[in-house]
Design a protein around this nucleic acid. Structure first.
Lengths: 243, 243
DNA sequence: GTCTATAACCGGATAGAC
DNA sequence: GTCTATCCGGTTATAGAC
């Protein structure tokens, strides 16, 4: 995993290939940034403040993180790992499809919680097709693949029986769904993001039901049409990230 | 419409209440900005360049547009009006639901075309919950309502027969769908955005079919669950826009 | 080569005079 | 309503230390 240059560019460059001290400096800057983002928010935290608080010069901070955004990229990768860890338990012990999905979605919201304060910026820069943070960008391909695989495990090691044509596509559909929940969560101002948890519960149930009825004959052509659309979407828009 | 302060704040303030000259200056700055965004892109166009090209000082440009983003807001409102105009024809003459929806979606893509070059920024800032450009924000409420009403006309003046419980909610679902198409379009790099048109065609057909089968008894509980989720989503996340 | 620092550049935004 | 002058913060150039 950490050998993947897309996902782990900075880590590979500094934590593996470079010196011990460099790795520690980098980690320290990242931790400091994370703390300041929590305390003050994203816009309110200047790179100068991050550098000062971390006890390094501004130029040095930029040596490790090429931009303020790239700090987010590092946080993004960290969050994904936390989610995978938090999902391990349900994935190992549950067999019911609905329960597995519910557990993974809960784990997602749980692990995201500490980032809620500045998640808006994370997502909004991620929405820019030109940004490497964009989920469809090359830079994000590795994380996206891994996350999709996670949803693949939700499905394939479960008791669910779905039509063959749908089976291979469903993980990606589930990943897209989970992005939708995140979008909602970003806007969620309810205490403890309770609304997001509730929404996840309901939609998980809805999806479980949809999966259950997916074998009904009259729905077959609809599913086929849906998959055709997905192919279409996947085929287009593979832009790289221009500077 | 222009009496609505949310949608038309700047316009109301300057085009209606202020002087002739001020209105002309404002329009000229906006036109200049639009041209420069086309020619150079968003990031590459500086406020200084806009001011210089428009023949005004930097401070003066900021007198009319409180931020670089607020230029986009003005463009956003303009685009919506263009869409409504371009949709008038199909809405007046077509009766088949699928055809009406197809026409309105085509009109959307047609009218959006000139903005494709810098649409990414438009959308990415719009994804920020704190941004007034956000479709769910108070500032956008008026445009959203109008756009939803447009999709209401697509449905209600058509020949489609849908279950009662769905009838009142479908317009908002269609609006959400149309946002999804826009998201795709933003990423679309195919010549003339042909992929987006194709996707719209396919999804319109898919939706028409879904609407047609929506009366199947076994789907009734699913629809009910879907509507419950929509209620949930609507209830939450009504954040205002902090500075 | 790896790391750190200082000084400067650039552009968004604001203050305040006219 | 318009300007000039200035601030502020992201980013870069570059020089040197280890």
């Amino acid at each position: 995993m950490s050998s993947n240059p897309d996902l782990r560019f900075a880590a590979a460059k500094h934590e593996e290939l470079a010196t011990e001290k460099g790795a520690r400096t980098r980690a320290h800057i990242l931790d400091t940034a994370l703390r300041l983002f929590h305390e003050r928010g994203w816009r309110e935290t200047t790179m100068r403040a991050v550098a000062t608080e971390a006890g390094v010069s501004l130029g040095n901070a930029y040596y490790y993180f090429s931009s303020k955004e790239s700090l987010i990229q590092a946080i993004y990768a960290r969050s994904h790992e936390e989610h995978a860890d938090a999902s391990a338990d349900v994935l190992a012990n549950e067999t019911a499809f609905g329960e597995r999905l519910r557990g993974v979605m809960r784990a997602k919201l749980d692990t995201l919680a500490p980032y809620h304060r500045f998640a808006a910026v994370l997502f909004s820069t991620a929405a820019d097709p030109a940004s490497p943070l964009n989920p469809w960008s090359e830079a994000s391909a590795a994380v996206r693949r891994e996350a999709t695989a996670l949803f693949g495990r939700v499905l394939h090691e479960s008791d669910a029986r779905v039509p063959k044509i749908l089976e291979s596509e469903l993980p990606e559909l589930l990943w897209t769904y989970h992005m939708g929940i995140i979008l909602f969560w970003i806007h969620d101002r309810s205490p403890g993001c309770a609304a997001s948890y509730r929404l996840a519960e309901r939609t998980v149930e809805l999806i479980a039901r949809l999966v259950a009825v997916s074998r009904l004959p009259p729905l077959r052509p609809l599913i086929r049409a849906l998959l055709a659309v997905m192919d279409e979407v996947r085929g287009a828009a593979p832009q790289s990230a221009p500077a």
